[in-house]
Amino acid sequence: MEFLLAIFSISYQFGDAFAFLVISCAGLAVIFGMMGIINLAHGEFIMCGAYVTAASARAGLPLPMAIACGALAAAIIGMALERTVIRHLYHRPLDSIIATWGISLIATQGVLILLGPTMQGIGTPLGSTLIGDRSYSIYRLVLFATSIGLLLGLYLLFYRTRFGVISRATIQRPDTARALGVDTRRVYALTFGLGAGLAGLAGGLYAPTMTMVPTMGSTFIVESFVTVVVGGADIFLGAAPAAAILAVIKAALTAWYGQLFGQIGLLVAVIIVIRVMPGGLSAFIKRWQK
């Protein structure tokens, strides 16, 4: 029994780290991993999702609806930005870094000026459950389940729907796709909007557990970039296994040596990975499959 409880507690920590990595990197995996745009405003899409979620939850919407609102708001803003700014920078990666960084600064400072330095939080729902002699937050278990659901949903979207096929075709061979009658501009806009919406979803999901401040997105940035860089271009062959491996590293180091070493472990892992396999896990796995 003692053994089972220890196993559960370790799995809980792993699941928690995994959920955080997957949920925070999903949007970036689409925009950076698939589309190749280095999106430094990723954290601000997360912040946008969190703020809209908190505002709508406090206005009386049930939390799942509020989170959906947050994701939708981020998606709409994402599509608007794609049309006005990002679209012109698809083949200029360095310029897109500057542009998205600028957007991120404007968003953080704009929110600070308009809404003030903090916003009241909404509180974590569902309470806790006692397993053995330790209590666990139920919402954290929901987050883990959500991260699995999210991966599954994205898999179905990209591999089992018409939008997914067209979107992958557009990103891999834009000329051919256009020759076959695909409105590639629209597909780019929708895919970017999807990425932004996923970032908003991350913000919404973590809004109840965090302090609401304009800079809150920055706490997601390191983890999401590390996961996407380790993962490489493919969400399923890359980001998902990368999240799993990094979650093990982070949970184990944090349990044994504390938060600082958890952070160090993540960064050392990314340095090793980009040295040994520059294309990330997904390129490595694909080569190994051939």
């Binding site: 330790r134 920055s218 706490t219 504390g258 938060q259």
Partner: peptide
């Protein structure tokens, strides 16, 4: 006694250490 780097926002493991 645990020292948390500035900017860390996820405390699951820390909470468990305290509970233990």
């Amino acid at each position: 006694e645990e020292f948390i780097p500035l900017g860390v926002s996820q405390f699951s493991q820390t909470i468990q250490n305290i509970q233990q």
